[in-house]
Design a protein around this nucleic acid. Structure first.
Lengths: 211, 211
DNA sequence: CGGAGAGCTGACTAACCACTCAGTCAACGC
DNA sequence: GCGTTGACTGAGTGGTTAGTCAGCTCTCCG
């Protein structure tokens, strides 16, 4: 075992690599089977390691799941900030953020992770904290992009923070609906709603996004 | 046991009453402990019956939970329709619907039931169906109220259905945020957002709701 | 080379929990 | 009254699963 596999550095790095590997496997398994349906044995199998190894690197299943949610959230926030800070007009930046906030396609079920986490977060404070940071970053980024557009004279909006909260809330709600109900809404309509709502908030015509 | 308790009718009614009682207890327990944390023994204890009785009335735990979700959803939809069909101007009817759609207070955690259900619904089609009907009824009702306002000349909106989808989505997203994060948003701000977004969709000033 | 310790294994255990079942009791029809 | 049937009990039972542990192997370093 582990002869033709990926390279492994010094022993000092090995544990970190393994931890990252377990985190990634946990993410895949939870996406596939749901949080409630995920066993630590499943994650072990997906990584081709023994069940005992999971508890060598993570004291409890909870630790593993929490670390996985935190690292996934951090990755998403990093990417969001890159897109928001990227080149182009404020309209282009805002549209990039909107498009990044919704699933790429019908088969992109990555949002179910946050649905599961939200249900758990009601009862568990450390999960709630992760969700709060994730959503806080989203709202803050949206608000910055909108405020930037206002400062540059592109947008008209007297409450960028409030607008960001409303847009973020609508995205969350609609994405859940899109994710849950296959026939309920097309991705095109989802994006249309996001653009219409955003356009209303910044005092522009929705057509600016598609021009 | 069961001497000073509530009256029980004929044997024919008894089973129905007991079923309803178990449904209601299941709702309370799930709200308190979450779907994942609910044991059938908890529901039995909350009803002061034996564990075996649960399975006398409901073949499986899943059956009980599903029936509970369905009955809760039906009750909420009935109440929503009453409020939407009630007296007053279209603005008043719309505002009643908006206020009914958000928690009554910080201690009203009834929405967590639907958060739990949504997470389960990703994997289980029969739960998904219940959610689809619930959300469909909400959107349809919102759309009817808006269309009514347009017909009566109160509102200006060229896509009541789309507006309803956006408002419903935003309510879902914001209510989750409100429910999850104690300090994140006040109920007043939540209601403010709902009214601002709705006012934008119907071409009125948000102040009409508070006048 | 040799000892130490990190990484890892897999069999084990203790707890948990949905569901079963044999039997009790009381209401109802006859 | 008396047998039947529906409501209900509570002690199981079997399957599942997070976490443990004794011991193995390999790498690193003196």
């Amino acid at each position: 075992m582990r002869s033709g596999g990926e390279e492994r550095g010094s022993r000092a790095d090995q544990a970190d690599q393994r931890r990252a590997e377990l985190l990634e496997a946990a993410r895949r398994v939870v996406l596939e089977r749901g949080l409630a349906g995920t066993r630590v044995a499943d994650i072990a199998r997906a990584t081709n390691v023994s069940g005992g190894l999971i508890h060598y690197h993570f004291a409890t299943k909870d630790d593993l799941i929490t670390a996985m949610l935190r690292s996934t959230g951090e990755t998403e926030v990093r990417r969001l900030r890159e897109l928001a800070a990227g080149p182009g007009t404020a309209v282009e930046r805002l549209d990039r953020v909107l498009r990044f906030s919704i699933p790429e396609s019908r088969s992109d079920q990555s949002w179910t992770l946050w649905l599961d986490a939200s249900a758990v977060g009601v009862r568990e404070a450390h999960v709630r904290t992760i969700l709060l940071e994730l959503e806080g970053a989203w709202i803050a980024t949206l608000a910055e992009v909108i405020a930037g557009g206002v400062a540059g004279g592109e947008f008209a909006c007297d409450d960028p923070r409030g607008a960001a909260e409303r847009i973020d809330g609508m995205l969350d709600g609609l994405v859940v609906r899109y994710t849950l109900h296959a026939g309920g809404m097309s991705r095109a309509r989802l994006l249309h709603h996001a653009r219409v709502a955003a356009a209303r908030e910044i005092g522009l015509d929705p057509a600016v996004f598609t021009a």
